[in-house]
């Protein structure tokens, strides 16, 4: 019996810390995404419904995370808020990837004055506080999901552009590109066959890393009242609304959406970091040999 337990314990170290972290992060993320997908089916929510007889109830079996100052279930609204945040995060990261990828690819492949002009443009935009720039963009549009996506996407493509450009610059002078040119490959062939396939995984990684960042940005905009209309659940709206309840002793109204935000973005970041560590071809080669 003891021996059997010992062998089982000895087998455990195979679950290395990195992999354990990734497993936990993956599970958290899977639960979060599943809850977001199933919520409208399982627990439909009338976003504008309020119930003044149920205000600021402490967490209980009926309301696992309590209710807010308008008698709405905090946990359920947090899930709906997370839906919005993830949606904005993913689409904003995609907008950033498209713009950043295009700018980086142009600068990295054409070089010369195109590169200089584009990169100075990037430096100029990077010099402005991007939250301020994002506020400026949403302020010009009507408050909506699309405005928030644009605001976050348009201010977050700079690092992606830099990553794609530097990756292309370092690839351009590698001997295997010279070998391809010497073999008769034209510009397009070199770009599509040899350069882009090396850059795309990096671009995908940069985009995924951008999602938690974009989620935080969306939350910040909503917290400032510039995101979604106030009656719609969003993590930022909820944290902001909950501030009033804090003084009345209802700590759960802000804490729950805050915790959801932190846990989910951390899980996303951890999973991406794990992926990044396995993306290096040298690491991959070691695993395969």
């Amino acid at each position: 019996m003891t021996a059997a337990v010992l062998t089982r314990v000895r087998r455990l170290p195979r679950l290395r810390p990195g992999r354990l972290g990734a497993t936990v992060a993956g599970t958290v993320l899977a639960v979060a995404v599943l809850a977001c997908l199933l919520a409208p089916v399982l627990w439909p929510l009338d976003q504008s419904a309020i119930d003044l007889s149920q205000t600021r109830l402490a967490p209980s079996a009926a309301h696992p995370a309590g209710t807010d100052d308008l008698g709405r279930d905090v946990l359920l609204r947090s899930i709906y808020g997370l839906r919005v945040s993830l949606l904005v995060g993913v689409f904003a990261a995609l907008v950033a990837a498209v713009i950043g990828g295009a700018v980086g690819a142009l600068a990295g492949t054409l070089g010369g004055w195109v590169d200089r002009i584009l990169m100075r443009l990037v430096d100029t935009i990077a010099a402005m506080p991007h939250l301020l720039l994002g506020i400026f963009i949403v302020a010009m549009l009507r408050p909506s999901l699309g405005a928030v996506v644009l605001s976050v996407g348009l201010t977050h493509w700079l690092s992606t552009a830099r990553i794609v450009r530097s990756e292309l610059l370092s690839l351009r002078h590698r001997p295997f590109i010279d070998a391809a040119v010497s073999g008769g490959a034209g510009r397009m062939r070199v770009l599509t066959r040899h350069l882009l396939p090396h850059v795309l995984p990096r671009l995908a990684l940069a985009t995924t890393l951008m999602i938690p960042h974009a989620v935080w940005h969306e939350t910040a905009l909503s917290f400032l009242g510039l995101g979604l209309p106030p009656h719609l659940a969003s993590l930022g709206n909820m944290i902001n609304d909950g501030r009033g309840s804090l003084l009345a002793g209802a700590w759960w109204a802000s804490l729950t959406p805050g915790l959801v935000l932190i846990v989910v973005t951390l899980a996303l970041a951890a999973l991406t970091a794990h992926w990044r560590d396995h993306l290096d071809p040298r690491v991959r080669a070691e695993l395969q040999l």
Partner: peptide, 22 residues
């Protein structure tokens, strides 16, 4: 022109650096 480029071939010192790892 491609017809000219392909008349000259070059073999590099490091085959590792001279081949696309993918």
């Amino acid at each position: 022109p491609v017809a000219m480029r392909t008349r000259v071939a070059i073999l590099f010192q490091s085959p590792r650096a001279a081949t696309d790892p993918r």
